[in-house]
Computed example of a mutant assay.
Amino acid sequence: MDITENAVRDICADAVFERGERYLADGRIHRIHRVNSTVTAVVSGSRQYDVGVDLATDGFAPWCDCPYDGPGACKHVVAVLLRCVDDPPADEGDRLDTALDGADADELRAFLRDELATDADLRDRFLARVGEPTRQSVDELRTAIDRRFEETNPEYHVVFEPIDFTQWFDLANEYRKQGRYASAATVYRALVESLDDNMESVDGAYDHFSRAFSRALDGYVDCVTTAERDADAVTDAVEFLEERMTSETPFLAEHFEKAAVEFREKLGEQSEE
């Protein structure tokens, strides 16, 4: 888990690296924590930005909720990574393990239940982790995602900055870990539909939204072809992709067409096995 300046340079532009150095020198990093290989921090710029990196992953899997849409990582991520080069935060994993080992089971259960009762996102991830299939439909999930677009700039309905879709990608990933591919496909499809239908309101951070759309579409195709399915489910997926080729977002049509071709190819490979 050693991290070097050269490794940081590899994931960003030279100018961004220099700005990240200045941010670190100016003391803009706050509330930095590490649990195992995951580092989270708050970095102050024009506002406070949440940053996350994984020191054990190639490229560090960086995430930041700033509006940067240039090549590579942003200056906030670079600043956090450079802090980890010079002065890595202490790993709090052992402290958490010790606290969990010493916690009373009934108190821990009561605490978890209270948190689950008030945090819907945490509740969804918890149910996915323990093997429960999703009870939410594509439309129900879409409503929550669409709301993020509406809340970003409610007066003009124009989106200038990135929207954080992490909770839905994390939820889909949790279902995949549990082998619940149909549930994961439901989450990915909600993301695909919402991003497709709201893309014309985007007026900034295009790379951020394009990456989210591609990630969701790829995840949808992978999960549908992996899940146990009947003929109706396969037909529904094909019709969905073909319908979206004539989407209201013309420049995304080719992505749906490519996904439909990939879907058929995967189905053909599976039928030959």
Rank of each mutant, 00 (worst) to 15 (best):
S201C: 11
F213L: 10
G45F: 04
V35M: 11
A237E: 00
A172G: 12
D104I: 00
A212I: 00
A25L: 10
W168R: 01
T134L: 03
V187A: 01
V42H: 12
D2W: 04
Y206D: 14
V138F: 05
D124G: 03
L241N: 06
N173C: 11
A184G: 00
D124N: 13
T98P: 06
T143L: 14
L55T: 03
E161Q: 12
V16A: 02
V130T: 09
E269K: 14
E151P: 02
Y188D: 11
D207W: 11
P162T: 15
Y188R: 00
R95D: 14
A190H: 01
M1S: 14
P67D: 06
F251M: 12
T166S: 15
Q48D: 15
A205R: 09
L100G: 01
D170A: 13
L191E: 05
R135A: 13
P67F: 08
E92I: 01
T225I: 08
L141I: 05
A90L: 12
L241Y: 07
E140K: 01
D139K: 11
C84A: 06
R211H: 11
E228Y: 05
G52S: 15
E242L: 10
D203S: 14
D197Q: 15
G93E: 15
L108H: 08
E242R: 15
E150K: 13
T225A: 11
D114R: 13
C223H: 03
A216Q: 04
A120M: 02
G93R: 13
I29S: 05
V85N: 02
R22E: 13
D58R: 10
V202W: 04
E257R: 13
D65S: 09
V77E: 03
